[in-house]
Design a protein around this nucleic acid. Structure first.
Lengths: 187, 187
DNA sequence: GTCTATAGCGGGATAGAC
DNA sequence: GTCTATCCCGCTATAGAC
């Protein structure tokens, strides 16, 4: 895919609007205004509105994947630290780095079939990271349960923070990760 | 508010479409077709599309509230049973009873300010039930952590099941509740 | 309570000049 | 790469007959 710096910048701005308004309610005119151009010019960079969504979701998932991998490199041998690192990395891509990952999670269903097919391997790679970390935690008895249920419950708990957590408030992603890990780890 | 049986029936059908397509992508024409009438006739029952959404969300939350209350009555003195009953009731209103509660959770942001103000007390009453049950579980050491974080994480884990769980599959709401409670309870 | 007909608007997308 | 101008469509909502 095309990845000019200009397109990257436009993608970043689109992500912001998609989070604020939702994909369906974001018009190409709103996007254009935010980008400082007219709506017609938008279609020089993107074939249609769908392609903007696909670009945002690709960016958001790619980003989450590389940040999570970097975080895991810092703690290769401690299952609890790795679980915490994944949770913190996930929350950071939702709140700090911001926006594109939220779109990837909450607007996935708005992708057309072709884009979904193209991006699902990326999403699967990210979820695979999670399952590995959870398997390690299960293996040492840090947590227990079925690997798929546990990973889905944890991801659900984390994803839903978007609906209630205020990133401008006093609590950091690190704090939230602490709370979550404390809730599920055996003691 | 008006609550004729006809309106109730139409509300039920609207909920189904809102879950399948999302509120924004559901047109009044789709709603009308599903209801077996023409789109113009719809506005005899509802003032506008917003009012349909508000009706669905009120119905969904009201329903979740009464089912949860009934479930809690069956087990007044056992904190673990009560936690499990709340989780199961929540999942049942999402999957079995069906649809309107999903809309309440996932389309809340699409409500206009007036409807939000009118319905928030209902939503708060439901969440208050959760906080009570969680407080009881915390008090006896069944789970631990901050009451608000714990309740939000649990609700997040449960709400997100809508995105991955297949209600036609072998697992029941009761099974999912088992898995969730097992994950978070101390042993 | 439902119909037909349609007003009125705002959406996505295109064409061609600069 | 951006502009202006505009097409065409589908959406919400209304009016008035039955």
């Amino acid at each position: 895919m095309n990845a000019s710096p200009r397109r990257k910048e436009l993608t970043r701005l689109a992500a912001q609007l998609f989070v604020q308004e939702g994909f369906d309610r974001t018009t190409v005119r709103m996007l254009a205004q935010e980008m400082g151009i007219k709506s017609g010019s938008l279609f020089h960079h993107f074939k249609d509105k769908q392609e903007i969504l696909a670009a945002v979701i690709e960016e958001g998932t790619q980003n989450a994947l590389s940040i999570a991998k970097a975080a895991l490199k810092q703690c290769e041998d401690d299952p609890e630290a790795r679980l915490h690192a994944m949770a913190r990395a996930h929350l950071e891509t939702l709140f700090a780095d911001r926006n594109a990952h939220v779109v990837a999670l909450f607007e996935w269903r708005r992708l057309d079939a072709a884009s979904r097919a193209h991006l699902s391997h990326l999403r699967d790679a990210y979820e695979e990271l999670w399952v590995e970390v959870i398997d390690e935690a299960l293996a040492v008895g840090l947590i227990h349960g079925d690997r798929f249920f546990v990973s889905r419950f944890i991801l659900g708990a984390l994803n839903w923070t978007v609906r209630w957590h205020d990133p401008a408030g006093p609590r950091t992603p690190d704090d939230l990760a602490d709370e979550l890990v404390a809730m599920i780890t055996a003691r």
